[in-house]
Design a binder for these strands. Structure first.
Lengths: 220, 220, 220, 220
DNA sequence: TATGAATGAGAGTTCATTCAT
DNA sequence: AATGAATGAACTCTCATTCAT
């Protein structure tokens, strides 16, 4: 029922609509969370709901698309951080900027994802994994962080820090900085190694979504 | 009519139903979050929805009652931890057990709180604050943790760790343990002090609620 | 299921409760119309809803009982008016005082009555009919009113005037007086007789109820 | 979204549905009063409730729309009556035809009107006032009615007569005619003037509504 | 292809009435 | 006889999704 095999190139107006929808979704998700109505998003984009359904099979898909976009930015951030001279600074920069990206959009860390959207998660993993691994290995080899620290740990750290963004204080960035510092301190080499092992990147990703904030309707 | 003003003694069957409702609510909240419908809760409890409304003025009240219960347990945990010999062990025990409590019930960390229910939050703060302060001061004075660590930091740490509970791994407790250890390492005395300052306990509490997972209907 | 054949004499406390319920009903109906809940009435009376159901088979019965009471007063008013010296003054007095009774209680003229309650209507008719007839005949014979005026016309006149009570003016009685006077002027002997004929008293009574203001629930 | 802001041209099927809804509403309001449920109206119209909500923001809006329609007809009637040769006949025609309109639809005289809908009431007054004034002044100047009769009196007269429509007789029009005649007789010039003064038109209008027959839910 | 319109399946809440103590 | 508690059937309104133009 969906446009079987979208041609690579959309008609100009269709592409414009798609973009308008994604932008609207990003704005509204960021402002009001995932519970905004598709009607609202369509209205914000200046198109009809049905048009939204021509571009996205359902609300999940639109959310996924909105996130995918953010994720592209995240990959970029990681790559830039990996290009830094100092391994330790690179790590910090990666965490800080990714965090900023996440907290800009509340949808990004209380998000969704059931079943089918999974593919983009995997593609994310493919792209993210090598650069984050590199970022971390560099730091490990330079003796800046504990040797048992794994890429998955960084993902969890980001998730945990994103949580801090919900605390209503006057200076959110300062608060984030405080707990980032706390975690960084914990990551430093130590005599007592961390127990257990990090989750795999795909497990971390599966957590991010975690279906929070979806209306019951979508849980089914 | 409301929860608070209930007569001292309920009739046997009413008490049974009330208990069944709270248990059902706890189970479903824990399993599916706060977005479960009252119909579902009532069904799970084996009573009619209207019965739920006899016991709780509205959905908020039921949620509040369910949480209040958990919170009593949390206070107890903190008190027991404060009774421990070793300050460091006490801190660990407090964090571990509170965390277990929180992860048992997903409602507890994506919870709510609109308007009038606010009173119990404050009562929680009143009861929790002194014992947690004591717990932390002891550890600080014993030189076990950084001197700039404040009670609010423990609250944030709990929130962050609760997030970890959402990561879908085979051994959730092991994962929690890993990141608890990471945070504990970060809390140890250090030459580079943490920047900024901790949020006040009431800010931390206000974050816990954060209206996540409430059905849009209840957001109003 | 109802107390089959209530003994003439109720137990003292039962009688007290019945009275309390009727009084409460009268107060609340007068103040808020027939849409008040039985729970509210019971609460106002200081008893439980179930007690209300012991005394009255359903809400209709309570309403009926509440009205019956008013109607007894109406009969009394008619009898006193019939005892007046001047026929014309008697008529006026009857209309004025009955009107006052009706407007005191908004339930009385936007009231109800489905099926079974009908018996009291008939008993009302039996008692009211002769005295009103007498009141009117006297006035007709004295040449004070048109000869084609019938008892039913007075009923209709009362209904119409009661409507006036709903107009929100500073001086409701003055307004009533104005239209009473208008109707009285119309009732005076005239060369052009009124067309048609008056409804029978029972038709007038059936109109009074007229099921206005009953919640859909009761319409069934 | 609301009625008022509808695009000039509805699509054919939407217009059909809108019409069906208004017709159904008119039928059911006329037959059972304003307490009918939207579900019932939608069912009668052969559409889903949600469709009703697409056309009318809520029950109030539907009621208002239904009445507005009737009111347009009422203004037309008044204008035609004002165009009559004979002042007295014009007055009679106005009352008779308006009455017929009102009794056709019981919603019209036990109607409502909360808050924002108020504008149409005022617009009604603006349109109705001048023509009714003219109608009455003509008759007064021609010596056909008492000189103290005011426009507001006609409004009250209509309300009172509409009440008569509730009396369940074989020939309702004949009954109405009888009491119309009674009131007309009372309006004729007389030596004893009417006491008090007429309510203002807006007071009369405020009475028409009077929130009768609205389901408790809507009373809020 | 994009739109306006329609829809079914709830969600939260209320109330007349009945059951069990 | 009176109560506390329970209930089922509504009622208003919403939303993700599909149909028809």
């Amino acid at each position: 029922m969906t446009t079987s095999a979208h041609p690579r190139q959309l008609r100009a107006d269709a592409a414009r609509n798609r973009r308008a929808l994604m932008d609207a979704a990003e704005r509204l998700f960021a402002a009001r969370g995932l519970c905004v109505t598709l009607d609202d998003i369509a209205a914000e984009a200046g198109v009809n709901v049905a048009t939204a359904y021509r571009h996205f099979a359902n609300k999940h898909e639109l959310i996924a698309a909105s996130l995918r976009q953010k994720i592209d930015q995240a990959v970029l951030i990681a790559e830039e951080a990996a290009g830094t001279e100092d391994p330790w600074e690179g790590l910090i920069q990666f965490l800080e900027r990714t965090l900023a990206l996440m907290t800009e959009n509340r949808a990004l860390h209380d998000v969704f994802l059931p079943g089918q959207g999974g593919d983009w998660l995997e593609r994310l993993e493919e792209r993210m994994q090598p650069v984050v691994s590199h970022l971390l290995l560099r730091a490990r080899e330079a003796g800046e962080v504990r040797s048992e620290l794994e890429p998955g740990d960084l993902g969890v750290a980001l998730q945990m820090l994103a949580t801090v963004g919900d605390v209503p204080v006057a200076e959110p960035p300062a608060l984030l900085r405080r707990y980032l510092e706390l975690l960084l301190a914990g990551m430093r080499p130590s005599d007592t190694p961390l127990p257990g092992s990090a989750p795999s990147p795909s497990e971390v990703l599966a957590a991010m979504p975690e279906a929070r904030n979806l209306s019951p309707r979508l849980r089914r």
